[in-house]
Design a protein around this nucleic acid. Sequence first.
DNA 1: TACTAAATAAGAATCATTATCTTTAAAGAT
DNA 2: ATCTTTAAAGATAATGATTCTTATTTAGTA
Lengths: 140, 140
Amino acid sequence: MSKVFREKLQEKGLKVTPQRVAIFEAILELENHPTADDIIAFIKTNHPNISVGTVYKVLDTFVENNLLKKVKTEKDIMRYDPHLSNHHHLYCSETDRIEDFEDEKLNELIGDYFNKHKIKNFNIQDIKLQITGKFKKSLT
Amino acid sequence: MSKVFREKLQEKGLKVTPQRVAIFEAILELENHPTADDIIAFIKTNHPNISVGTVYKVLDTFVENNLLKKVKTEKDIMRYDPHLSNHHHLYCSETDRIEDFEDEKLNELIGDYFNKHKIKNFNIQDIKLQITGKFKKSLT
DNA sequence: TACTAAATAAGAATCATTATCTTTAAAGAT
DNA sequence: ATCTTTAAAGATAATGATTCTTATTTAGTA
């Protein structure tokens, strides 16, 4: 299965453990930018003895090694995103759904704008759009 | 002093208490989008008996009544902003400084862009830019 | 001045996240 | 295949911001 993932761990000098594999698979499976808690719940069925601290530690390790990104919401809970390329997020405050939003043209537009209108006393490193609103109900 | 503030409280049917006045003044004084803790520390000198819970409750009340806005950072701590008009934030991850950033032209640019390029399955309510980078050192 | 609802104080409780410390198990060397 | 080394996992205590609870106080009004 995720041979690529195992190789990435090895590249960074990280050991390939069943926990790490399970946690990474859980994030891919869960899709909606899961919380640590979501991940623990999901894993518990196949991996009943996994420790809460381990999950947090593994998630941190992944973030440090650019295998994951942390996403912050209105609530005080971290969520995790396996989508590594530079992108924005769509937030629904009612349902807590978060979806990735990628738009290269928009990035260029904003990039150009700031090239022409520098902010005085500030060097920009990164710009993220936090787009809040409502998902239109689809006939799931 | 903040007669306007007192009137605003009354308009909303909120009682004018010394605690509420002190907290609001503290936020104006502190400027750098203070945390609840910053506010408590600041107030303690004139108001040694103020209770932590009160500060949090008052801040919530202010946010609910549009007297303040909550600002979320990378860290798990809420900060508060007395600046009510629609604006973005400049973040410095090194120093935790946050400054307000207002740019009507930029808002129009982005608004126009999304009018032309609707996101399917999503109705936008609000767009916030989270601009991270470094403040250029000024000779304080 | 007294009344009543709202606000405050004090401190316990919560909950996500971290830290500690011991045990276990990858991964490379023998 | 076994040994060794060291990172990783497990268990659980600790932390720290925020919320909750309950008794007491006070602002605004009759």
